[in-house]
Amino acid sequence: MRKVRVATTSLAGCFGCHMSFLDMDERLVGLLEHIEFSRSPINDIKHCEPCDIGLVEGALCNADNVHVLREFRQNCKILIAVGACAINGGVPAMRNHFTLEECLNEAFLDEIGVDNPHIPNDVEIPLLLSKVHPLHEVVHVDYYLPGCPPPADAFVKIITDLLEGKEPSLPREILHYD
């Protein structure tokens, strides 16, 4: 039987959701009998292939994030927003209290110890969005996995449910936002 193909990525994330995914420990070995990975930070695949499930951690903070998210949406049958950032912007969205100019000035011009102060302007660098946004404001999201990060058990539960063709549900013990 064909394995279920899973892609993962981190946008404005901290990689903590991926670490929590790996926290399923030896259960990952059993899971790998049923799933295989497309584009993910844990392999070398550069672009998202047509997939069954896309796991996206992190909010949207720059143009490249939006580009990658759209690639995932186009290629993944089921897209899951993973973690607080993907769901409501998370802690990075605290910068929405300030203008982008204020943030860039603080980091690259005014901060103590800045050498050769200038705001990076190479075309290779993706431009920041004026605000941080959750995923569902840009693409349709099929499921949400809350937590900062979601516990490993929550990853196991949602993926197992989907593999068994069930509607995913999170019992109260593994549902938290913090």
Partner: peptide, 20 residues
């Protein structure tokens, strides 16, 4: 937050206001 857990809330559904 506890009420949100009680009602199995997984996401905010609506666009964020991000008030300042």
């Amino acid at each position: 937050q506890a009420l949100a857990y009680h009602h199995d809330m997984l996401d905010g559904h609506f666009p964020q206001f991000y008030p300042r």
